[in-house]
Amino acid sequence: MCQIKIYGRRPVTEGKHMPQYILLLREAPSDFSNYSPEETQQIIGEYVAWRSKIQAEGKYVGSNKLKDEGGRHVSMRNGKARVVDGPYAEAKEVMGGYFVINAADYDEAVETSKGCPHLKYKGWIEVREIEPVPAG
C-alpha cells in the first residue's frame, strides 16, 4: 500500500523556474497514543486540510514519512565504516518525514510551513531550498 516516491533531479525548464523547498519535519519522539480517538481524528483532519490546501494552491510536490523504527548512523572511522543503530526513541529529536513544495522564495516557503499543524503539535520545521539541476 505504501509507495516510495523518489525525487530525482528537479527538471528545470527554460530558464524560468519555480524553486523547490524541502520542509524537514522534526519532532521529539513521543508517545502519540495519548490522544483520544476524537482528538486523533481532529489532528489528522488538520494535516489533511493543510495538505489539500497546498495541493490546491499548486505548492505541493510530494511528501514521505520516514519509519519511526530502525535507522542507522553510518560514519567512517580510521578508514572503517562504523554503523550505529539510531536515532533511538530516546533521542531528543528525530526527523519524522518531509514535504517538498514549490515556493517563489524563502518567505513564501516559510509562510507555507507556518500553516503546517506539525508546529502546533510540538514539532519544528527546517526549511531548505533545493538546488536546481541545470537542464541538459
Binding site: 502519540f32 494535516y47 489533511v48 499543524p117
Partner: peptide, 11 residues
C-alpha cells in the same frame, strides 16, 4: 489510530 496519525499527514 496512532499509526494513522503518523502516516496520513504524509501519505
Amino acid at each position: 489510530m496512532a499509526r494513522a496519525l503518523r502516516l496520513w499527514p504524509y501519505q
